[in-house]
Design a protein around this nucleic acid. Sequence first.
DNA 1: AACCCGTCCAACCGCATCGAA
DNA 2: CTTCGATGCGGTTGGACGGGT
Length: 324
Amino acid sequence: MGRSPCCDENGLKKGPWTQEEDEKLLHYIQKNGHGSWRTLPRLAGLNRCGKSCRLRWTNYLRPDIKRGKFSQEEEQTILHLHSVLGNKWSAIATHLPGRTDNEIKNFWNTHLKKRLIQMGFDPMTHRPRTDFFAALPQLIALAALRQHLQLGDQQQAAKLQYLQSLLQSAATTISSSDTEAPALGLGAICCSPPQLTTTPLDSCTAPVSSSLLPCTFPEAAPPVSSEEDEANNHQQQQTAGLSSSYGGLGSADDVFACHGGSSSSSLPPLTDLSDAHAGSLLQVDGSMRSATASSSFGGGSSCSPLPWPELFFPDDDPFITDFL
DNA sequence: AACCCGTCCAACCGCATCGAA
DNA sequence: CTTCGATGCGGTTGGACGGGT
């Protein structure tokens, strides 16, 4: 596939660096600076291509490299910057002294991205996923269905029948949605965050659909490419404050802070963090949440009304209030 | 002990961008 | 304006490692 690798062309070495090579490179750069990376290997006595040397230097040998685990503050910064900049690792790295773009990228891919997905967020847009959320109420109902199988009277039977139809539509919705959602499973769905949303009534037009979320966040997280955006970003940071925007991914505050609430005045808050349930919903490790996490999703607002008709589920129905 | 599987991360690859000629 | 080499960047790979069975 594609062109041959540059290092193969001249029989140059590839793969892990030896200590001897490291020392040669380090000594040369400390003495002469890197200058032209293309000529450096020859001058330094290394059988490597310049690219490989540059990478080794910038990602490993540079004296100002910070090693070890990312701090909570660094995590927060990465999350915030990624929500604004996208996969601009080098740009993000400039805000994290001592960290390389490669390191940040790896950290994102192995930790933060997974955590966001687990929590029901699209890691690219930093928005709650809308695909499987469309079926969330149905799935929640199904999860509790077992508890109600002993129902006897006619009305309960009607409810059961209705839930069965929801099951079908939920399955359809999920199987036709994009690829990641099914893999997340109900567990992930149950720990997903929309339950926390408290939506301004006028900011929403469609219930429980791909557009159910009231977020006016841009469709795709726009990479900051213009000075204006940079300025906006800066303003956002000043307004929200990097350190206050996140409390660490582990808490509900963290995620939602980065999803509009405090990061831009033009974005309606997705979350009422003062909500009494919020505190109990998300654990530090981003793992499973309690079933009650679904509580405000259905009943939160007219924006995402329950899919089941009031006929079956009057407000004071204990069956539905289980979920609310 | 051997194997499997998932995670982590250094390093590679190829495309994009920049600047000099 | 175009070309071309150098460098930067982001996506991906593959090997080391650790935990579980």
